[in-house]
Amino acid sequence: MFYPNSPQTSPQLTQIPYGQQYAMMQRQIQQPYHPFATTEPQARLYPYHYQGPIQQEQGGFITQQSTAASPQYVQMRVTPVDQSIMSGYPNQTANGSSSSSFNYNIHPQQQQQQQQQQQQLRHHAMPVGSVPLQDDRYRKQLIVNYLAPDVTSTDLHELFSRFGELDGARIIYDKQTNMSKGYGFVYFCHAEDAKEAVERMSGYEFHGKWLKVGYSTNPLNIVPSNSSPYVHAGSRGAAG
């Protein structure tokens, strides 16, 4: 039997160049792979992502010199942007860049009308829970959420009447099932009393439920100042 490094198959040491006398086997001759043993700084910083320098080929596509990437890492192929796409944008300079302001050559009167329309939209648009300043009635009506099913309009009136005089209180019921929808409205005579009720009743436990109280901004629920107070009856038909 002959071994790869046996004296019968191995040459004389004098015939082997210096430095390879003890590297006779194939696994010894093959050098191990060192990912950080390279002179390129990109490979030292990113050993798993770097795959060699990027070269520009004919046709405008950018390719990489090395083989496919590892399945664990996804390499994105980048193509140059066609400058003709950006030619339609206004205020574009000769080098292809555009300024931040756009001039669509709008007539001054049209621009003024658009600004007025935007101001009107901001004036009428009102986020949930906010209180408008032009109508004091919005500051007097509250919406009470997360009410228990057994709470009546009379219970709601008695709960909030300790903060001040009320114009009314009612629970909203479903017309088909005649069941409470879980929320109601309270109408105060003074805005200061309503503000105190919002601050003190939010998070209050009532009939096993934690109440959420806020201003009601729905104009359909506003009680006119010259109208008669609501009837605080315990029956659902009268309260709904």
Rank of each mutant, 00 (worst) to 15 (best):
P4N: 09
N5T: 07
S6H: 11
P7L: 05
P7H: 08
Q8M: 05
T9F: 05
T9D: 04
Q12N: 08
Q12A: 08
L13N: 10
L13S: 12
Q15N: 10
I16N: 07
I16Q: 14
P17A: 11
Y18A: 06
G19I: 03
Y22R: 15
M25G: 13
M25F: 05
Q26T: 03
Q26F: 05
R27L: 04
Q28F: 03
I29H: 11
I29Y: 04
Q30K: 14
Q30H: 07
Q31M: 06
P32R: 08
P32N: 07
P32S: 09
H34D: 07
P35S: 06
P35H: 13
P35A: 11
P35W: 09
F36E: 15
A37K: 15
T39H: 06
P41E: 04
P41Y: 09
Q42G: 13
R44P: 04
L45N: 15
Y46V: 07
P47A: 04
Y48N: 15
H49K: 15
H49I: 03
Y50H: 15
Y50E: 10
G52D: 10
P53A: 10
I54V: 11
Q55K: 14
Q56R: 14
E57V: 07
Q58T: 09
Q58N: 10
G59L: 04
G59Q: 08
F61P: 12
F61K: 15
I62D: 15
I62W: 04
T63P: 10
T63V: 04
Q64M: 05
Q65D: 05
Q65S: 10
S66P: 08
A69C: 14
S70T: 06
S70M: 03
S70H: 13
M76I: 04
R77D: 03
V78K: 15
V78W: 05
P80H: 12
V81L: 07
V81K: 15
V81T: 11
Q83K: 14
S84L: 04
S84W: 03
I85G: 08
I85P: 11
M86F: 05
S87M: 08
Y89I: 05
P90R: 12
N91V: 08
N91E: 06
Q92T: 08
T93R: 12
T93G: 11
A94M: 09
A94D: 06
N95D: 09
G96N: 09
S97H: 10
S97Q: 10
S97C: 12
S98M: 15
S100V: 08
N103M: 04
N103R: 15
Y104V: 06
Y104P: 08
I106S: 06
I106R: 13
H107P: 09
P108Y: 11
Q112M: 09
Q113D: 05
Q113E: 07
Q115N: 12
Q117H: 13
Q117L: 12
Q117I: 10
Q119F: 11
Q120V: 10
L121H: 10
R122I: 08
R122T: 04
H124I: 11
M126N: 11
G129H: 08
P132Q: 05
P132V: 10
L133P: 09
D135M: 14
D136C: 14
R137W: 04
R137G: 03
Y138K: 06
R139Q: 06
K140H: 02
K140E: 02
K140F: 00
I143H: 01
N145M: 02
L147G: 00
A148H: 12
D150L: 11
D150I: 15
D150Y: 15
D150V: 15
T152M: 04
T152G: 12
S153E: 13
T154H: 05
D155K: 05
D155A: 07
D155F: 05
L156I: 12
L156G: 00
L159E: 03
F160V: 01
S161P: 02
R162S: 12
F163D: 02
E165A: 13
L166A: 00
L166M: 15
D167S: 02
G168S: 00
G168I: 00
A169H: 00
I171D: 00
I172K: 02
I172C: 00
D174P: 01
Q176H: 13
Q176Y: 15
N178W: 10
M179P: 00
S180G: 03
S180E: 01
S180H: 09
Y183P: 00
Y183K: 00
F188K: 00
F188N: 02
F188H: 01
F188A: 01
H190E: 06
A191I: 06
E192R: 14
K195A: 14
A197C: 08
A197V: 10
V198I: 10
V198R: 11
V198M: 09
E199K: 15
R200S: 04
G203R: 02
G203A: 02
Y204M: 13
E205L: 08
G208I: 02
K209C: 02
L211S: 01
K212Y: 01
V213C: 10
G214R: 00
Y215I: 02
S216Y: 08
S216W: 00
T217W: 02
P219M: 01
L220P: 00
L220H: 02
N221W: 15
V223R: 11
V223D: 02
V223W: 02
P224L: 04
P224M: 05
S225H: 11
S225V: 14
S227Y: 13
S227P: 07
S227I: 13
P229I: 06
Y230M: 06
Y230G: 03
V231I: 14
A233D: 10
S235Y: 14
R236M: 05
G237Q: 12
G237W: 14
A239T: 09
G240N: 06
